[in-house]
């Protein structure tokens, strides 16, 4: 009786442990005991760092994993032309009717450590369901490296330009620099009070000029200008020294006026 009880518990423990081991193996993806799985070959030109064991999600739900990644030894067949990598994925058969001809196979990055996964969008209903073992073309992930290399090109040209005009640029920079320095020192030398006084004076001057110009625009002034022009016309004939003398006199007068 005692012995049987012990045997029972030992047996239970051993079976439980073996079961636990199988569960762990299943969770870690070594054993797939449940249900049939469908396999698809997804072809990429660029696989974007996806690795064997990476999860495959359909509509954001994990339903499988990447089982194998291989390079194509022979040229790709027609519908997947131009690709070089074949990614074999295994999927739970429950998503079988979701994956259709127009499903898209993206390689995405998730999480803060940048885990790669394969996202499959469900196809539309009018599109035929993909058979087990089909070959499909995946959407190449954005080539971050390519973007970078294009960026490098632009930078290269800028650099080249700078290098070619190095002296000019240097002179330009030097003169800009000295200009700035001078301006700066001038500004420093100026007394604040004087500057504000200057601005005030400028204000007064401009106000006076405004009055003056308004007066100039009046009919009386225009008449005077006409007369002045007439006078100048007539004075054209007069010889230079005389004219000078005359103008000087007129100027004095005008100033008095």
């Amino acid at each position: 009786m005692e012995q049987q009880r012990k045997e029972f518990w030992v047996g239970t423990l051993v079976l439980f442990s073996v079961g636990l081991l199988l569960v762990f193996a299943w969770l870690l993806g070594f054993v797939q005991p449940l249900g049939k799985r469908i396999h698809l070959s997804v072809f990429y030109q660029f696989a974007g760092g996806v690795e064997v064991g990476a999860p495959v999600r359909v509509s954001g739900v994990k339903v499988g994993k990447v089982e194998k990644i291989e390079f194509l030894s022979s040229p790709a067949s027609e519908n997947v032309a131009g690709t070089s990598v074949k990614v074999l994925i295994g999927l739970d058969s429950q998503v079988r009717n979701l994956i259709r001809q127009n499903s898209k196979f993206y390689i995405n990055i998730a999480g803060i450590i940048g885990e790669r996964y394969l996202e499959v969008t469900p196809g539309s209903e009018d599109s035929p369901v993909l058979e087990n073992g089909s070959e499909v073309r995946g959407m190449d992930p954005p080539r971050v490296d390519q973007l970078l290399s294009q960026g490098y090109g632009v930078f290269g040209r800028v650099q080249e330009f700078l290098e070619r005009n190095e002296n000019t640029m240097q002179e330009l920079l030097t003169s800009v620099h000295s200009l700035m320095t001078d301006t700066n020192s001038i500004l420093k030398k100026l007394d604040r009070k004087k500057v504000s006084q200057l601005i005030e004076n400028l204000n007064t001057v401009s106000a006076n000029v405004a009055v003056l110009s308004q007066q100039l625009r009046s009919p009386k002034s225009s008449k005077f200008i006409d007369q002045l022009a007439d006078l100048v016309d007539r004075a054209h004939e007069i010889d230079k020294p005389a004219l000078q003398k005359f103008l000087q006199e007129e100027g004095v007068r005008a100033r008095i006026f």
Binding site: F16, S17, L20, F24
Partner: peptide, 13 residues
């Protein structure tokens, strides 16, 4: 041996 393996697995679980 059995105890340690089994208990380690149980511990992980």
């Amino acid at each position: 041996l059995v105890a340690n393996v089994a208990l380690t697995l149980i511990s992980i679980g």
